[in-house]
Simulated scan of single mutants.
Amino acid sequence: MDVPLQILLVEDNRFFQQLISDFAESHGFGLQVAENGKIAIEKLQQQNFNLILMDVEMPEMDGYEATDFIRNQMPEFQDIPIIMITSHEHPQHATKSLLTGANSYLKKPFREDDLLKEIQTLMIG
């Protein structure tokens, strides 16, 4: 039996947490939620994940800081795919996300199909 994809959602918005939770459940993915980057780093040290969905704007430690920390201070997680998610329109956020170490970037709101395509691309190649 295959182990389901384990996703860490780093997101402080409860509405979006529920949307991604429903998405994960409908596709048979496991999901854990961290409300900010600091909690995400703690969860990474406690459990194995295959993928991180990282919001950009959060209290305490935002998505850029958390991604930078994961990429530069946690060598055991160098290869974990990170998809940055934000509601910002400006292209600089996509550029900054990729420069910080994210593998890809999605702008909210996005379609479920777009998220699934990104996950498949990153997990399968």
Rank of each mutant, 00 (worst) to 15 (best):
H88Y: 14
E112D: 08
G101T: 08
H93W: 10
K117C: 02
Q92G: 00
S104P: 00
D113I: 13
A102M: 08
L98P: 04
L98A: 09
M74Y: 12
E76D: 15
S97M: 09
H88K: 14
E89I: 10
K117T: 12
K117R: 08
S87D: 02
N72C: 02
P109L: 11
N103H: 15
P75T: 12
D79Y: 13
H88W: 01
E89S: 15
K96G: 02
L106K: 03
T95K: 14
K117A: 10
I85L: 12
D114A: 11
E89Y: 07
L99S: 11
Q78S: 14
K107N: 13
L116D: 00
F77I: 06
I83V: 14
M84P: 09
N103K: 14
R71Y: 10
Q78V: 00
I80N: 04
F110S: 04
I82P: 07
I82L: 08
S97D: 13
Q73G: 01
P109Q: 08
S87T: 13
L98Q: 09
S97W: 06
H93A: 08
L99G: 08
E112T: 13
Q73V: 01
R111Y: 08
D114V: 02
R111V: 10
E76T: 13
P109H: 11
R111T: 03
D114L: 07
I70V: 14
T100I: 00
Q78L: 09
K108L: 11
I83D: 07
D79A: 10
